[in-house]
Amino acid sequence: MSRAVSTPLVVGVKGSALDLVMSTLYFDDAVPELMTMAETDRIEDSGLALPIPVYARFQARGFPIVGTTLDYFAFRGLEIADGRQLAIIGETVLGAKAAEALGLGPGDFLVSSPETPFDLAGVYPLKMNVVGILAESHTSDDLAVFVDLKTAWIIEGLGHGHQDLIKNKDASLVLERNEKNVTANAKLRLYTEISEINLDAFHFHGDRSQYRLTALITVPHDSKSGTLLRGRYVSPAAATQIVQPVEVIDGLLQNIFRIKNVIDAIIMVVGIATILAILLVFALSLRLRQREIQTIFKLGCSRLTIVRLMAAEILIILVFSSVLCVGMMTVVDHFKNDLVRIAFIR
């Protein structure tokens, strides 16, 4: 929720606002319809807000690749804990948990995953150089693989180098070698790599303003600018929408709260039933022990002492169950964010 609060506005293609927000804020794998860079210029030219492009469409070994600009890191307050910031295309900076899970550090590389397993016509995956690891932020940024926007476009196939076929001396590429022929196995050209050798030749094709994005995190310079900017998206003819993540997530939470209210009511009924059951158990137990009570009374125990004895027994039961309860509550409380994320947000 705090992420939604700290993200003032998100611009994206008209459609599910929830998909847009989930994809932009939490890099959800349900990628919404894509928008173009032209929108970035439009917002920038308006002078009302800072647009931060987010292109969270691809994945690398199960973690979302987030193409963005340096503004994103500053905006989210993400610091480099190890290594350095992105500098050259083909480089990647990993979120703390992603780096831990993948076992990668600066100097290692990470290959992007094909968009679909049967993407035969698609571009080759990109071998990215890991140059930095971010400090843990306890947000979805920890699980992201950050690249420059341009690198994300290269993964999409919009940019390439002419020297794709680097003279490779890797012996593992060779399947069979005889005097006349060298047969390469499927490993050859399994991925594209941006190196010092082909960096100079790397270039992009087409009109940059038509390059695609998931969304724009839009940071108004002040609240008035925010209102003005939102006003520009009210036209029903507009292809794009501007949403306030707080409102969207709040709507989602409203539903969760509605469910929560139902659950609360159920818990209350169950609770009352439990209390009645407990009372019944105590009453029955007292009745069963009536003779015992009578005996100790005849042996000379005062009624007050008998009451005290019974009270002490009940108290012991209550104390034990309370301790158990508090213990379980503490465990649940400790993991509540993860539990909520697993249950509702992923």
Binding site: I296, L299, G300, T305, L309
Partner: peptide, 10 residues
């Protein structure tokens, strides 16, 4: 010994 434990008189 129970009577001794439930009363103060003993």
């Amino acid at each position: 010994l129970h009577p001794y434990r439930i009363t103060r008189a003993l």
